[in-house]
Design a protein around this nucleic acid. Structure first.
Length: 598
RNA sequence: GCUGACGUAGCUCAAUUGGCAGAGCACCUGAUUUGUAAUCAGGCGGUUGCGAGUUCGAUUCUCGCCGUCAGCUCCA
């Protein structure tokens, strides 16, 4: 007998093989209806899977975070049920729950169209209304092979299952799938869902295998949550850096240079502000050097890139040799090794630190390019530290005071590495900086230093880029702030608006005072109404609009409108205004809504 | 690279079954002199991404190329 311990401490004795459904029913009919799955000894299983062990027994309802993946996985089966009804030729692949929903992969002769998607969604609603129970069966390998004999994808999957694994199938109405579960009790549980889009996906993610058609979808327990999720997707689209970049006139892409951003004056200002910030932070600890953008292949042969990384490098034809024996550099490391090898280094000089902000070129797959986050030309705050011992990496990490995890084996190219992941204002995670140990490069480039013992020693190299690439970092900043940059980052910090254009001369001293204080200010003396220019300034997300009318001109004041604060503006003297902004700029203050997150 | 969708004025988008390519904003000119999110009028602006093909006729249909977007093992 198995002993189940309920949350209230009561125990139940049941025979092995008892269905959780029966146990839950004995507790209460209402609970049975609400039950999505159960947890036995910490493991989630559905109500149709026979109990094999005892332990803590909890009923998982839709309030439990573990319930959602179960619902979504069932949603995938319901999707497949609908697809098979409308497209009986579709071969079924995998259909897992994912972070934000679920997907299902199909192998079909003709790819799905948006119309198909709408039809599938309508058909799914029918399947839901029909409330087919999810029926679990455990079958022998032979039986499984027989049941899926006409589906090569499933047969391959069965072949991969270990000899001891329980093979199970789930049936909902007309549809049967090889599946481990768990599932909700019947198809009626999927009430709030939406099919999102289709995409190609290689069978098992292998580009050498056939391309399947994937349908992405999402599902929630309540309409509110579904609507919220769809709303979030919409919000994310609005702050997409490609959209905002266009609105704020920060950068462009042209077909003549795919993957290489073209920075406008505003974008260049932003870019330079960031680079300057990084320079300032390094405070001379790193020696900045500018190095060649193009190298002869012999350097890449020495570094190993010619063998491992050549496909990602832009090769350059040398007219004299008629060979592609030069390449644009995809990274700065070799530059730093070449320079390190100028002269001899004493152990007293270590650690030696170099940094380079040069443009790098990597030939990314055309299909992988995406805005500023995946580009072919970019720059990093690319540092290399030459030091005596590995211990220094740990010391450096611990000095940050943040938790860290060594990713041994992950950095196939060099050595152990640490990635810095950041989360933006709408909860998305991004990988930015990397710190990676390298024992290989010092060997390849025969890097040495003279030790206290007067003998030659091999230093260790640390690769370090904090912001990753500036391009991607800017993309993240744009989306994080939705374009409303803090004052210090804003390309245009203040716009001075004379109410009528015959007040332009009276407003000019305000502009001059701002400029003299190192602020990026402009004067909008266009022959347009004040309302028009206010609107334009707000849309361009200028942090401050300073309005100068007859009154202000006479009194030496400005009527200040801070971005996004509507009609609540305050009047202050020009001197106070300039001082306020200069201080905000100097301290790199964040907008109020971001301050709590610091 | 692969699969699918998309590509019309600087931007956002229209254009019945193939029949002379349009609007708003932006820009230019003029009027207006504006007090906190779009003043009015007029004007300029396009080899419909590029190249072939089908057709009397192509933005529309077909093919190729270029670019953009969604994706391309969060494992039955």
């Amino acid at each position: 007998m198995l002993t189940l311990t309920l949350p209230d401490g009561a125990t139940r004795e049941v025979a092995p093989g008892t269905l959780p459904k029966d146990v839950v029913a004995s507790i209460g009919a209402g609970l049975l209806r609400a039950a999505i799955a159960v947890s036995v000894d910490g493991e989630v299983q559905d109500l149709a899977t026979p109990l094999r062990k005892g332990g803590a027994f909890t009923v998982i309802t839709n309030k439990d975070p573990r319930a959602l993946p179960v619902l979504r996985h069932s949603g995938a089966h319901i999707l497949a049920t609908a697809v098979r009804r409308l497209r009986p030729d579709a071969k079924i692949s995998f259909g897992p729950a994912i972070d934000d929903g679920f997907y299902y992969d199909f192998e079909v002769e003709k790819p799905f169209t948006p119309d198909d998607l709408a039809a599938f969604e309508a058909e799914m609603k029918k399947v839901v209304a029909e409330k087919y129970p999810f029926v679990r069966e455990e079958v022998s390998r032979e039986e499984a092979l027989k049941r899926f004999s006409d589906d090569q994808l499933k047969l391959e999957r069965i072949g991969d299952l270990g000899p001891d694994e329980v093979i199970s199938t789930y049936t909902d109405g007309p549809f049967i799938d090889l599946c481990r579960g768990p599932h909700v009790q019947d198809t009626g549980y999927l009430k709030h869902f939406k099919l999102l889009h289709t995409a190609g996906a290689y069978w098992r993610g292998d580009e050498k295998r056939q391309m399947l058609q994937r349908i992405y979808a999402t599902a929630f327990f309540s309409k509110e949550e579904l609507d919220q999720h769809l709303h979030r997707l919409e919000e994310a689209r609005k702050r997409d850096h490609r959209v905002v970049g266009k609105q704020l006139d920060l950068f462009h892409f042209f077909p003549v240079a795919p993957g290489a951003p073209f920075w406008t004056p505003r974008g260049t200002q932003l870019y330079n502000t960031l680079v300057e910030f990084v320079r300032e932070r390094q405070q001379g600890a790193f020696l900045e050097i500018k190095t060649p953008l193009m190298y002869h292949k012999s350097l890449w042969e020495q570094s190993g890139h010619w063998g491992k990384y050549k496909e990602n490098m832009f090769l350059v034809l040398d007219n004299e040799t008629q060979e592609h024996d030069h390449s644009l550099k995809p990274m700065n490391c070799p530059s730093h090794y070449v320079y390190y090898n100028v002269g001899k280094h004493s152990y007293r000089e270590l650690p030696k630190r170099f940094v380079t902000f040069d443009p790098l070129h990597r030939n990314e797959l055309s299909g992988a390019l995406s805005g500023l986050t995946r580009v072919r030309q970019f720059a990093q705050d690319d540092c290399h530290v030459f030091l005596k011992a590995e211990a220094a990496l740990k010391a450096a990490l611990e000095s940050t005071g943040r938790p860290y995890e060594l990713k041994a084996g992950d950095g196939a190219f060099y050595g152990p590495k640490v990635d810095f992941d950041v989360t933006d204002s709408i909860g998305r995670a991004w990988q930015l900086g990397t710190i990676q140990l390298d024992y290989n490069a010092p060997e390849r480039f025969d890097l040495q230093y003279v030790g206290a013992d007067n003998a030659m020693h091999r230093p260790v190299v640390i690769h370090r880029a904090v912001s990753g690439s500036f391009e991607r970092f800017i993309a993240i900043l744009i989306e994080h702030f939705a374009g409303a940059f803090p004052l210090w980052l804003a390309p245009e910090q203040v716009r001075v608006l004379p109410i009528t254009n015959d007040l332009a001369d009276a407003a000019r001293p305000v502009l001059d005072a701002l400029t003299a204080a190192g602020l990026r200010a402009t004067l909008d003396e266009r022959n347009e109404t004040l309302n028009y220019r206010i609107r334009d300034g707000e849309l361009m997300k200028i942090p401050y609009l300073a309005v100068v009318g007859k009154r202000e001109a006479d009194e030496g004041t400005v009527a200040l409108r801070a971005r996004g604060t509507g009609a609540k503006q305050e009047t202050m003297s020009v001197a106070a205004f300039v001082a306020k902004l200069a201080e905000e700029n100097r301290t790199r203050a964040l907008p109020a809504e971001f301050k709590a997150e610091q």
